[in-house]
Nucleic acid binder design. Structure first.
Length: 595
RNA sequence: GGCUCCGUAGCUCAAUGGAUAGAGCAACUGCCUUCUAAGCAGUAGGUUGAAGGUUCGACCCCUUCCGGAGUCACCA
């Protein structure tokens, strides 16, 4: 895929020859569809060299190119823009290249290694819509980095200890009557989540009662018996009280079983799990070392701080007066531990909501101050919250869109529509189920990934998820359609290959357009990695599918009489199907053979 | 209040400083006797929050304001 480079070098030659000067950056961009041509040269920056108007400059370069470069067939000047048309033989060669490179879109291994963290849930409640965005993003960015030649290690840190799980434990002790996932038939994470909500309900009741007795809200909050039970459980946990540890292990075990089912359905996996209960004491040593090196300072009360005013930030506590760790201390320790576990990684990517931007800014500065050069390559993959029409999601109050429920609903919708359209004929029950799953999850993932990760997005359960238009199923459909076409070709005994169309001289505009979009794929894969943005891939996949559908709708493939054209169109279709499958794979979305 | 992010069609979202700001949904009109109509073609819908500035050229960069969100915890 070196058209761009070759074209650039020809333009540089032209500029040197015509204006006798070394050209600055050549600005090439795709030609807008309403004009003829595929590449557009922006001529304004060249006017300083040419000492001519933009139009005259463009005219001169265009004339030179068409006269001297055999594969440039035509040009057109529009208001300082030089639109360049390449001969169709270039495009047939491009297609031949893409068709023959089965790994098109996957860049060669770079030998570079990187870690991506995502998910990292608390264990007191099931996963919700926000986690879905997080997991799909983390997964997709990992795939995109792999396609860019990286070796990727996917990890998460499971926040399995702390007051939140103790709250669920407290409520379960009080109201659970020994309920288990088996006895209730509930998924483990949902069962534990139920008691988390139960805790909040009871807590509010108690606080209200205490306030009616004249206590302040703060005081009432502390004295509420159920809160005292929870903090007592936390104390016992830290003191390694066996009974408490046992309940903790049991309830976390329920949650993990539930999570596992959810992750499996989401199609998400991890290479290594870190548990906060193992890592929460880490970092203290590092901070003490930093204190000795004079990177940090100690206050009279014994607490340890870092001064970030030079970086335009504030002072930040790293160890409490009693010597215990805070959140960021743990993260310092965990980061260093991970670099010991994976010595070859050059950096870490943290998929965490944008409300923690300040935290990660501080974390990376501290790691740099401690002398870890890899801190430069640490990146907070920050994403915006998913809003509901009703406002913010609150786990405590149970006003969340549950991940399992949502996936169920999506798959059900997919099933309803698929049946309505009569598309399950000839499928076994198992195949049909798999198809509903593929479509439903494809719609959900695509919906969450097509938006720029940084942006806050709105999720309207009633209207947001569609199966038509700019959606995953639209792209899946295009893929299935091509597969049907290829099956039919095989049935009719038509085989095809790059040799079959090497002499094709003339292309239809619709054919040319599809090849042009195909030729941009690798650029997009690089760009997506650079920006950590699956949205770029999603938008590209949609553009490609749309372009192909236009072709498909207007140009016959198997009905064509000219054999070279049949060969070309089949190869084109095959290449589109493969690139769609590749792009969707980068998004973690499967594509069906039929739908 | 300081800092960060966001503000684009009725709604949800696009647009490496480049051409007449594009899609989908919703609304309206066409196209299944031809490879899958989850499709295609078309109509309508915009003072890109506002005002200045830089530039040959600004949704994009700078300044100020308006509106929204987040953060500034010895919670995680």
């Amino acid at each position: 895929m070196q058209i761009e480079q070759q074209l650039t070098s020809e333009i540089q030659k032209a500029v040197r020859h015509l204006f006798g000067a070394e050209p600055p950056d050549i600005q090439l961009q795709p030609t807008r569809p309403e004009f003829a041509g595929s590449h557009t040269l922006v001529c304004f920056p060249l006017t300083r060299l040419s000492r001519k108007s933009p139009d005259e400059t463009a005219q001169a370069i265009g004339a030179y190119l068409t006269a001297n470069v055999p594969w440039i067939s035509a040009f057109q000047v529009v208001k300082g823009f030089l639109n360049i048309s390449l001969s169709d033989s270039v495009w047939t060669k491009v297609l031949a290249y893409i068709f023959q490179h089965t790994a098109y879109g996957t860049l060669p291994a770079s030998g570079r290694e990187i870690m991506v963290e995502y998910s990292s849930p608390n264990t007191n409640k099931p996963l919700h819509l926000g986690h879905l965005r997080n997991n799909f993003l983390g997964w997709s960015v990992s795939e995109i980095l792999k396609a860019n030649g990286y070796t990727v290690h996917r990890v998460q840190i499971i926040n399995d200890r702390g007051i939140h799980i103790c709250k669920s434990m407290a409520a379960w002790k009080l109201f659970g009557n020994g309920e288990t996932p088996q006895s209730s038939g509930m998924k483990g994470d949902h069962l534990v989540g139920k008691y988390y909500v139960e805790f909040d309900r009871q807590y509010k009741k108690e606080v209200k009662a205490l306030m009616e007795q004249g206590l302040s809200e703060e005081e009432a909050g502390k004295q509420a018996p159920i809160m005292q039970l929870a903090t007592d459980l936390l104390r016992r946990w830290e003191a390694k009280d066996e009974e408490t540890l046992s309940l903790w292990r049991t309830m976390n075990g329920w949650v993990y079983q539930g999570f596992e089912a959810t992750y499996r359905r989401m199609g998400v996996t991890f290479d290594k799990l870190y548990y906060e209960s193992d890592t929460y004491l880490l970092g203290r040593e590092e901070v003490l070392k930093g204190l000795q090196q004079g990177v940090f300072y100690k206050k009279e009360d014994g607490s340890v701080w870092v001064d970030l005013t030079a970086e335009g930030l504030d002072h930040k506590v790293l160890l409490r007066a009693d010597g215990t760790s805070v959140y960021i201390t743990q993260d310092i320790g965990t980061a260093i531990l991970r670099f010991r576990d994976f010595p070859n990684i050059e950096g870490q990517i943290y998929t965490v909501g944008n409300e923690q931007e300040y935290h990660f800014k501080v974390l990376f500065i501290i790691l740099r101050k401690l002398g870890y050069s890899w801190a430069e390559k640490c990146h907070h993959l920050s994403y915006g919250m998913v809003d509901l029409p009703t406002g913010k999601m609150k786990s405590r109050e149970g006003t969340v869109v549950d991940a399992d429920d949502l996936m169920d609903e999506m798959v059900k919708d997919a099933e309803t529509l698929t049946r309505q359209l009569g598309k399950i004929e000839g499928l076994t029950e198992a195949e049909a189920r798999e198809l509903f799953e593929t479509i439903g999850l494809g719609a959900l993932k695509f919906f969450l990934l097509k938006v720029d990760p940084r942006k806050r997005m709105l999720f309207d359960p009633q209207e947001s998820i569609q199966l038509q238009g700019f959606t995953g199923p639209f792209i899946q459909y295009t893929h299935a359609r091509i597969k049907a076409l290829l099956r039919k070709a095989a049935q009719e005994g038509i085989s095809f290959g790059a040799k079959g169309f090497e002499n094709l001289q003339k292309l239809e505009p619709a054919e040319r357009h599809v090849v042009q979009v195909l030729s941009r794929y690798e650029e997009k894969v690089k760009e997506a990695a650079l920006l950590y943005s699956p949205a770029i891939i999603a938008n590209y996949a949609y553009e490609l599918a749309r372009e192909y559908n236009q072709f498909y709708q207007t140009i016959p493939v198997l009905g064509e009489t000219d054999n070279s054209s049949v060969q070309f169109r089949l190869a084109l279709s095959d290449a589109v199907a493969r690139v769609i499958a590749h792009a969707m794979h980068l998004l973690g979305i499967r594509v069906p053979e039929r739908m």
